[in-house]
Amino acid sequence: MTSSAFMYLFLAAAVAGGVGMLALRHPIHAAVSLLGTMLCLAAAYAMLGAHLMAVFQVIIYAGAIMVLVVYIIMLLDLGSDDARAFRSVKVFVGIPAATVLVSVLARLAWHRAAGTEPRPGLLSSIGDPAAAALPEGFGTVASIGRDLLGRYVVPFEVTSVLLLAGIVGAVYLTGRDSAGLKAQGNAVGEGKGTGDGGQAEGAPAGGEEFAA
């Protein structure tokens, strides 16, 4: 009883955080409410016994992604006025998405209340009471680890390669100017001469600056 009370508390807080994220004008306030939502969701996972899920929710979403979001908001110094820039996104993406979500949820709730089965389809398993029966050890570190490194090892590794490619690309795109300069500087410092023209796109500019 207490646990379900806590469950409802966390879920209510998560919903409040989501509403807050949408309603608050200041980006950092919105980010903090999103953080609250994620932490509450993690708590809900934990209450459902999915401890690893909860921890990943905190480590990855709250700990890593939200930190980046907050970081960017701070560094760009976004004020409340900058929220207006995203108005068209809200209108053309947000409203349709919200409409779809609300309609699906309403349909499920309708069927649950009426005690009827929803028509089979893409979302059919969501409301399926049979799906609630979980296998033994669901959500533990061992079971998830076994799935991740056994059954789903190929998608898992492919994803990691994708992420690695993303990281390398980001480093190349953001770091090429300074890399070019550094290469020039090192070359002079070590007395090797310059003119390794094909080195990087940014090299000529840096080299001219150095020569002047």
Binding site: H51, L52, A54, V55, V58, A62, A64, V67, V141
Partner: peptide, 11 residues
């Protein structure tokens, strides 16, 4: 893992 999660939130 819980320890890492919580201390990461400390950021």
């Amino acid at each position: 893992l819980y320890v890492f999660a919580v201390s990461g939130t400390g950021v």
